[in-house]
C-alpha cells in the first residue's frame, strides 16, 4: 500500500481512516476521532463507558482498516500476569523450554475491564505499554509497531474492582468517554441493522483497509513536522500547570501530560488538515489528555463536580494566547 509522503497526504489518509471507522461505529464520531489521534500519536487509550456501546467493535474495526493484529483480554480477578504476557513452558518432545507468547503480543490490544484484575496483572500490562517490550525468562521481546492498548472501564459496576493508581493512569495518553449515541444516530443504527446494511454482530468484513501499519507509522512521522508556535506550546503548558494549583483539584497533571497535550495537539491539527497547531487544537484535546490525570478535591466531589466540569472551568479561565 502507498504511504503518505506529505502532510496533506497524511491528513487525507487520516480522514479516510476516520470516515471508514465512522461507517461502522455509528454516532461515536468524537470517540473515533480521539482514538485515531491517540493511535497516530503513539499513545494508549483508556475508554470509559457502559457495556454495549461498541468498544470491541471499534478495536476490531481499527485492526481491519489498518491491517493490524488484534487481541482481546477479558480482565478478571484471577487473571495472572503470565496470562497477559506469556510464559516459558517445558516441551517434552524437544526437552527444551519453549516460550508461549501471551495475547499482549499483538498490535491492537483490547484490555476489557482492566480494573477487574488485581494490581499485579495491571502492572504487567502497563509495563508492556511503557517499554513496548515483554520480558519472559530474562529474554526481552520487542513488540511490533504500531502498538496500542485500548483498556476499558465500566463506570457503573465498581464493586470488586481495583482502581488504577494515578501513576498508571498517567501512562494512558487519552481517557475517552464513550456515551450513548443520540436519538438520531441510534435510529439510524437500528434502521441499518434492520434493513441489513450492517449486521448486529461485530461484523467488520465489509470494511476495507485504508492503509497498513507502515502507512500509520508514516503518518506518525509526518505529524512530528506539524508546526507548533511557542505561544501555543506555552498555552498548553499553562493549562497543565494550572491544574496543579486550581480550586477543586487536589492533584494536578504531571509533565508527562504537558508532552501528551503538545503531541496530541499536533495530531489534532494534522487530522484537521492543517500543518500548524492552533490554540483551539490544544483546547480540543485538553479534556481527554487531562481528565484522568487530575484528582478532584474532597470539597469539589461533595459539591457534585466532575473532572469534566472542573476542566471546563479551567479552560475558560486560562487565557488564550495572543500574537
Amino acid at each position: 500500500m502507498s504511504q503518505p509522503t506529505t502532510l496533506q497526504e497524511a491528513a487525507a489518509l487520516a480522514s479516510e481512516i476516520e470516515q471508514r471507522l465512522n461507517q461502522v461505529l455509528i454516532g461515536q464520531q468524537q470517540v473515533v476521532r480521539e482514538v485515531l489521534i491517540a493511535l497516530i500519536a503513539g499513545g494508549h487509550v483508556l475508554i470509559e463507558g457502559v457495556p454495549g456501546l461498541g468498544k470491541t467493535l471499534l478495536v476490531r474495526s481499527l485492526g481491519k482498516v489498518l491491517e493490524l493484529d488484534f487481541n482481546r483480554i477479558q480482565f478478571t480477578p484471577d487473571l495472572m500476569p503470565t496470562d497477559v504476557t506469556g510464559h516459558a513452558m517445558y516441551d517434552q518432545k524437544t526437552e527444551q523450554f519453549r516460550i508461549r507468547r501471551g495475547p499482549a503480543f499483538t498490535q491492537l490490544l483490547l484490555a476489557d475491564e482492566i480494573n477487574r484484575a488485581p494490581a499485579k496483572t495491571q502492572a504487567a500490562l502497563l509495563e508492556v505499554m511503557q517499554e513496548r517490550q515483554i520480558t519472559i525468562e530474562g529474554k526481552a521481546f520487542s513488540l511490533k509497531e504500531p502498538y496500542m492498548v485500548l483498556a476499558t472501564q465500566n463506570p457503573l459496576d465498581q464493586e470488586g474492582t481495583y482502581p488504577l493508581p494515578e501513576a498508571e493512569l498517567d501512562r494512558f495518553l487519552f481517557k475517552v468517554m464513550i456515551d450513548y449515541p443520540d436519538h438520531g444516530d441510534e435510529t439510524r443504527l437500528v434502521n441499518m441493522v434492520l434493513d441489513g446494511t450492517i449486521r448486529a454482530s461485530l461484523d467488520v468484513e465489509s470494511l476495507t483497509p485504508a492503509t497498513d501499519g507502515a502507512g500509520l507509522m508514516a503518518i506518525r512521522t509526518l505529524s512530528d513536522s506539524v508546526l507548533i508556535d511557542g505561544e501555543v506550546l506555552d498555552y498548553a503548558l499553562r493549562i497543565v500547570r494550572t491544574t496543579r494549583d486550581f480550586s477543586g483539584l487536589s492533584h494536578g497533571a504531571s509533565p508527562r501530560a504537558s508532552i501528551a497535550l503538545a503531541r496530541a495537539g499536533r495530531v489534532q491539527a494534522l487530522v484537521e488538515g492543517r500543518d500548524f497547531v492552533t490554540p483551539d487544537d490544544i483546547q480540543q484535546v485538553a479534556r481527554p489528555v487531562l481528565r484522568h490525570r487530575i484528582q478532584l478535591s474532597a470539597d469539589a466531589e461533595i459539591e457534585g463536580q466532575t473532572p469534566e466540569t472542573v476542566l471546563g472551568r479551567l479552560l475558560e479561565q486560562v487565557e488564550a494566547p495572543r500574537q
Partner: peptide, 9 residues
C-alpha cells in the same frame, strides 16, 4: 466569552 476563548471558539 471567557478569557480562554480562542478566535475559532
Amino acid at each position: 466569552l471567557a478569557a480562554g476563548s480562542t478566535e475559532q471558539h
